[in-house]
Design a protein around this nucleic acid. Sequence first.
DNA 1: CAAACCGTATCAGTTGTATAACACAGTTCT
DNA 2: AGAACTGTGTTATACAACTGATACGGTTTG
Lengths: 128, 128
Amino acid sequence: MISFEDFVLGDGYPIYLQIIRHIKQGIAAGAIGHQEEVPSRRALSALLGVNPNTIQKAYHMLEDEGIIVSRSGAKSYTSVDEDTVQHIRRELQAGDTAVWVEAMKRLGLSRDQALGLAADLWEKGQEN
Amino acid sequence: MISFEDFVLGDGYPIYLQIIRHIKQGIAAGAIGHQEEVPSRRALSALLGVNPNTIQKAYHMLEDEGIIVSRSGAKSYTSVDEDTVQHIRRELQAGDTAVWVEAMKRLGLSRDQALGLAADLWEKGQEN
DNA sequence: CAAACCGTATCAGTTGTATAACACAGTTCT
DNA sequence: AGAACTGTGTTATACAACTGATACGGTTTG
């Protein structure tokens, strides 16, 4: 069963996109595997305090990407082969990093200044 | 006069927040100084192809932060002392970097893996 | 079988963002 | 003084995101 323990609702960003991202992150990090049970729409909506429709929207889009398989009436499961994992991993890693690099460049930082700042902030948080 | 040449409207992110960010980035990078003229609401709305009310909302919030000074009827100017510049610089640099570091940690990357990925992507773009 | 769950669908309502069309008063400049 | 700008404010409209409530039929389990 996929866990939503460390999941906290962000501010302005659409909830359904946050959920999609959370699951993709879990897959990329290896915390979520193949044929793993997904929380039901109702259960997750109750846990997060959001509307079931919002969860449905997120799951539906994940199903369009082939990451989730749903059968009417039954529980939903993940469906991630090795190619999918690699694809998601590249998508998230390279995407986020490119955005950050662009932001740092626009702020006028040099490569080493930016990397130094990141290295400093890495230690401030816990773990890794 | 503040330039909006290299400014392109993004996809889903609110336009008024993009405008606020663009001006703050210019100040943090040193491209925008003190007592610099800000494009009029009407002129900028025509240039970007958005509604004047959207520009007004962005300028109004910048005025609340003390970054812009507006006198009814006259042109608007920036108002940024050294403390403000430092504050904005920290806000943008540390904020973006903290978000990126958190994302990389959640993806299961080590510090060196993340920094290596960033260093690679830094070269791919132009300049700096 | 029957209860309890599940996915799926529809409807109306609220909020935030953006558009559109104005109006009014203060300023700058010729 | 008068024209052309400026900032400011109002109202109505549109759309996407999210909420709230409800319903239907399929699956699972005791």
